[in-house]
Computed example of a mutant assay.
Amino acid sequence: MTDPKISALYVAVQEINSLIQNGTSCSRSLEEKIVEHLENSQLLGKLPKNNGDSHEEVYMEVTKHGLRISSRRTRLVKLRIPLIELILLTTYADGFGRTNIVFVEKSTTTRYQLHLLQATDDASSNILCNLVKNAFIEAEEASALIEVIEPPSPSIA
Rank of each mutant, 00 (worst) to 15 (best):
P152R: 09
I156Q: 06
V35Q: 15
R75Y: 04
T2Y: 04
E138I: 10
I149G: 05
V13T: 15
E31H: 07
E36A: 15
C26W: 06
E39S: 13
S143K: 10
L89F: 10
E150N: 14
E39K: 14
I84D: 12
I101Q: 01
Y92T: 00
T120F: 14
P151I: 05
P82S: 00
L38G: 07
E150W: 03
A144K: 10
P4W: 01
N126F: 10
Q21S: 13
H115Y: 09
S25C: 09
I101R: 01
V58N: 07
Q113L: 11
T120R: 15
L47F: 09
D121M: 01
S70E: 08
R72L: 12
Y59T: 12
T110W: 09
R75K: 12
A93Q: 14
A8T: 06
L114F: 06
F96E: 13
E140C: 14
S7H: 09
V104S: 01
V13Y: 03
E138D: 13
G66P: 05
V102R: 06
T108Q: 06
L44M: 11
N50W: 06
H55N: 09
Q21Y: 14
R80I: 11
E140A: 07
L128S: 10
E61R: 15
E105H: 07
V77S: 13
V11W: 01
A144N: 10
L47S: 07
V132I: 14
E36Q: 08
K49P: 03
C26P: 11
I156M: 07
I156N: 08
T63M: 01
L43D: 15
E32Y: 10
S27L: 08
Q21A: 15
L116G: 02
N51A: 03
K33I: 08
